[in-house]
Design a binder for these strands. Structure first.
Lengths: 337, 337
DNA sequence: CTGTTAGCGCCTTCAA
DNA sequence: TTGAAGGCGCTAACAG
């Protein structure tokens, strides 16, 4: 079946193409009854505007790009939800891209997006990304960009983050208050500013309590849980005094559980674990996992809102529009059952 | 900065637009050295073809639509991963849409997509969808469609599913073999064929073991965990003999844990729970959750592959291309620690 | 209030 | 092997 377009619609109605177009776009210069007639017919014939034609002409794609490291992760899943919500409210479409923590993939994706496929981009940078030079093309192409959670350095744009330093401090302090004397910090990459900030908080908290802060373990940006587990086990063997683990992502917390189990170290009696995580089932883990929960959904929403403000006003995204949301420490203790 | 287009490129090279276009598309009728020169220059000026112009002209959007109920769910997260993988391998983009189990949203999304924004669609229908009449427009518009996991009835197209009947049977039998005599079946909607098939397997297994099969509880398509928990608690109170729960989605398994905890029913001693789930942490739940794991990632890949085969050959997707993958029963017992 | 006209950037016959 | 020209479907400036 031939798809109905403006031309066909115009013929059926004995009107010109432009009149039909304006009627459908609710132009003020079209008579009310004409509008009605046109819309009626459009409905009848199941008219749906061709997005590529209008995109070409109007230079509006009605689409944003969402670039994230992975999706099998509760934080990003919730964030997607928030983004999609706002996008739909603005009548926009969402293209999703996964970098799998690869800088190269990220650069390729950005390169493509700079070609005008999207009106704006929301992104959380890959842990591998050494710098943000690949994002320069976006700036040149005037494609609005908003970072969320994992920000790129050196790009003057808005960033939606959580209080990484403060929560790193709080998490560490919580472990110390629970009696830990030697706390290890696990992160998957040392190029993420977010991990740095949390580590600063971690260091400061230990220092404030007169404890050494030299047990940081950087697990290279891997998504392989077994490998992470192995490295954590090695750390625990090399440094048997470790009685607290602060994991910056939930997958490292799970690996820590595994490592402790393999070494016969009881959690939480011998080793206490705390983690940044949005796991819905954290309370049902054995033992329950105390977490720092980020407002992932809200971050996705917020980032999208900032982006759409820029898009609709046709203005660049300013660094001053950045927002920092609060994360929450959720303490969960064993029920002893 | 003005985005470079074919015209500009042609001017710089003292060639015609069409020659440049053909060179970039590796046309056989362009001299090798000309191609080289053109590509060099394109690279130099950071030329990126305008997807809306080429989409309009070639009637290829290089984009597929992925329509799923939600994303904060391990099954769909993994599926997205598989889909994205195949899409990128085919140089395609992925538009993501969440129905939040709403039939209305699903219909609106489909309506939009039928307008030519995508070359094909992958979808898992919303639990609310009473029938598939809203998908008729897609068929009319010749937009290839592949269902995965949750299929729509009455549409002649390929579907990628798992062995729902067999796995429903196996799950139930497992509970019976563990000593359960009264097994409840939980599902979020009775309009999903997938839930029906699993229930048939459940019924057959109970029958084969000479047990009654009247404890099915249909929790209306809600994503509200508290509400689900309440309803399950009511079921357990009304029918105290229930000693086994077969949950068709992981969120209902978690609600079952909560309900049992609230009623002081010990799991797994008094009530055993099994669930369809792709939770990475199922082994660490307390008690560990025995699951039927679906090959989510592979399903996403498979569905995308079938779709791309149709797209690249410009032919409709045939029901005969359907695939049924195997799910796995993963038994996890309490470590008694 | 409505119609005519001119492209948006690209691909693709047709002609040279 | 390259160039010229038309048009994909839509929007917007300019007439009337």
């Amino acid at each position: 079946m031939q798809r109905t377009n403006l031309k066909k619609l115009a013929q059926e109605l004995n009107l010109s193409i432009s009149t039909v177009s304006r009627a459908l776009n609710d132009s003020y210069e079209i008579a009310a009854d004409t509008k009605e007639r046109v819309k009626q017919k459009a409905q009848e014939l199941g008219y749906e505007p061709n997005p590529y034609a209008s995109g070409l002409r109007s230079r509006k794609s009605k689409t944003i790009g969402l670039v994230i490291p992975e999706v099998a992760n509760n934080f990003f899943s919730l964030a997607i939800d928030g983004v999609e919500e706002i996008a739909r409210a603005n009548d926009y479409h969402v293209l999703i891209y996964l970098t799998h923590e690869s800088h190269e993939r990220e650069a390729t994706i950005i390169q493509h997006l700079a070609g005008g496929r999207v009106d704006g981009i929301l992104m959380s940078v890959a842990s591998e990304s050494p710098d943000a030079s690949h994002l320069a093309t976006l700036v040149e192409s005037n494609v609005p960009l908003v970072f969320f959670d994992r920000v790129g350095e050196g790009i003057a744009t808005a960033r939606v983050t959580t209080d990484d330093y403060a929560s790193g401090y709080r998490a560490t302090e919580h472990l110390v208050e629970q009696g830990c004397r030697r706390v290890a910090y696990l992160l998957i990459s040392d190029t993420l500013s977010i991990g740095q900030k949390r580590m600063e908080g971690y260091r400061a908290a230990l220092q404030a309590h007169g404890l050494p802060a030299d047990a940081a373990l950087i697990v290279p940006g891997t998504l392989d849980r077994d490998q992470n587990t192995r490295r954590i086990r090695e750390l625990l063997e090399q440094d048997p005094a470790i009685d607290g683990i602060f994991a910056s992502v939930e997958t490292l917390a799970i690996s820590s559980y595994e490592a402790c189990q393999q070494l016969g170290r009881r959690v939480p009696e011998e080793v206490k674990i705390i983690s940044f995580s949005n796991l819905a089932t954290a309370a049902y883990l054995n033992p329950p996992l105390t977490t720092i929960r980020q407002p992932a959904y809200e971050m996705g929403k917020k980032a999208a809102e900032i982006l759409f403000r820029a898009i609709s006003r046709n203005r660049p995204v300013l660094p001053t529009q950045s927002a920092e949301l609060q994360s929450t420490l959720v303490v969960r203790r064993s029920t002893g059952g």
